[in-house]
Write a protein that binds this DNA or RNA. Structure first.
Length: 447
RNA sequence: GGCGGCGUGGCCGAGUGGUUCAGGCAAGGGACUGCAAAUCCCUCUACCCCGGUUCGAUCCCGGGCGCCGCCUCCA
């Protein structure tokens, strides 16, 4: 059984599934206002690998991830461009899914949009106000954080320290009573998109949508809530607090993925302006190189992404493809249970993908030496189904090239080395890697 | 200011109180090859600094230095 670090308890614990054999997973998805950067790619890869591995290991997975399509930044972007928020959101979302497809990230089973849940959010907020957990302020409705007994569970430390350092204004026009309070509903300023509510036209605050959508689609007491580590506090805490205040059982476990940092070790984020664009990365590198790079770091740690590390991973992927080609015939073999077990053991231990990958590289070497098809089959299956990293199969070689290869074999058979070398040079010039094997000249595309 | 994380060999990146090693990439040597390529074998460079605990610490404790993060929109 998969064991994961739970942010709430601070311990690595076995999943405690609501229903046996079924994993309900909710992950906070993107706010669609600009092109995704490589950090978004990392978090998407982490949860994709988790969902794939959980499925591969026999769980029935229900994976929901939201799209935030109304938000201050979308509004700001639309104003800049002189267009509307829906245009910004739909365009950015298209770029997002295109990048996900290229990364080989499987779509979550459901991808709810905030704008489709506004009514439900208003209902939730109204209930919170009625119950005394929320209050109208000057520019919206605020959640009274202090009314939730264990508020701060997902915070990095005691709340007293947070309060001391909080830079959020209290009082003034917002009417916020405590720096920890947060907006559930923001009243619309002129020209802003809005929905009707008992408190006036406005839009929901960011922290409410995930509560409503996760509970609607996964039901109460769902198994695992994930997201980037920067969301743990306050975003996830604020979700949790709302659910608690509304008397709804929320996520049983919390998991958070680490950040991508630039070469100098600094966090990559939109607000720091030091981001690498994800589409740009995918143009420049084999998307599988990024997946491998992500797999070679532990998901909770920061990870360095740079051209150097991507290129190194790309070369390693080339080696994987070589293995996939050389053992294409082994795909039908019965996968070796030993390899499978060692791989699963690493994965089950808090998604130790670096360890799991090391197991696979070791197994590849031993398959090379022994020629054991079962070991090879287990390796290929683990890469592809367990980790979502497909390996190349037999190369597709056009007739003209294979004719040259055949001619070269004939030349080599009569030891006509100059002719053989000339043909090899031609093939290389055409972009082929030429390898001599027991079965004759083998070709594959140069990467 | 409060809280937390990290500091590993040329690079990325795991892990552990000691005797066998993460793994990947790169580099050097060798085998194989007509020559290559691919593959395999071997090798090299480690655990920020200073104390302490210990028979023994990279791993535990304390201090220091450095980098980073969260507390504020953020994957």
């Amino acid at each position: 059984m998969l064991r994961l670090y739970d942010t709430a308890s601070g311990r690595i614990e076995a999943l405690d599934l609501r229903r046996r054999g079924e994993l309900s997973l909710y992950v906070c998805g993107p706010t669609v206002y600009a092109d995704p950067h490589v950090g978004h790619g990392r978090f998407a890869l982490v949860w994709d690998v988790l969902a794939r591995y959980a499925r591969w290991s026999g769980l029935s997975v229900r994976y929901v991830s939201n799209v935030t399509d109304i938000d201050d930044k979308i509004i700001a972007r639309a104003a800049e461009e002189g267009t509307d928020t829906a245009a910004v959101a739909s365009r950015s979302e298209a770029v997002w899914w295109d990048a996900m497809d290229r990364l080989g990230v499987q779509r979550p089973d459901q991808t709810p949009h905030a704008t489709a849940y506004v009514e439900a959010m208003v209902e939730l907020i109204a209930g919170l106000v009625d119950a005394g957990h929320a209050y109208p302020g000057g520019d919206g409705v605020y959640f009274a954080a202090t009314t939730v007994a264990d508020y701060g569970l997902l915070a990095p430390g005691p709340l007293e320290g947070l309060q001391a350092g909080a830079r959020v204004e209290v009082g003034a026009e917002s009417g916020k009573r405590s720096p920890l309070d947060f907006a559930l509903w923001k009243l619309a300023k002129p020209g802003e998109p809005s929905w009707a509510s008992p408190w006036g036209a406005g839009r929901p605050g960011w922290h409410t949508e995930c509560v409503v959508m996760s509970l609607d689609l996964l039901g109460e007491d769902f198994d695992l809530h994930g997201g980037g580590i920067d969301l743990a506090f306050p975003h996830h805490e604020n979700e949790r607090a709302q659910a608690a205040a509304a008397g709804r059982a929320f996520a049983r476990r919390w998991a958070h993925s680490g950040h991508v940092v630039a070469d100098g070790g600094e966090k990559m984020s939109k607000s720091l302006g030091n981001t690498l664009s994800l589409p740009g990365l995918l143009d420049a590198h084999d998307p599988r190189a990024y997946r491998l790079l992500a797999l070679q770091s532990h998901y909770r740690r920061s990870m360095t992404v740079s051209p150097t590390t991507l290129e190194a991973a790309g070369r390693a992927v080339g080696g994987l493809d070589g293995f996939g080609r050389d053992f294409a015939a082994a795909r039908d073999a019965e996968p070796d249970t030993g390899v499978r077990g060692r791989f699963a053991e690493r994965m089950d231990d808090d998604l130790d993908t670096p360890g799991a990958v090391a197991v696979l590289f070791d197994a590849m070497r031993s398959a090379r030496i022994s020629g054991d098809a079962g070991v090879a089959a287990a390796v290929i299956e683990a890469w592809e189904k367990g980790l979502g990293l497909p390996l190349a199969g037999e190369a597709q070689v056009p007739a003209a090239a294979s004719a040259k290869a055949a001619e070269r074999d004939a030349a080599r058979a009569r030891k006509d080395w100059s002719r053989a070398d000339a043909l090899r040079a031609e093939l290389v010039a055409d972009g082929w890697v030429v390898e001599d094997t027991a079965g004759g000249t083998k070709l594959r595309r140069r990467r």
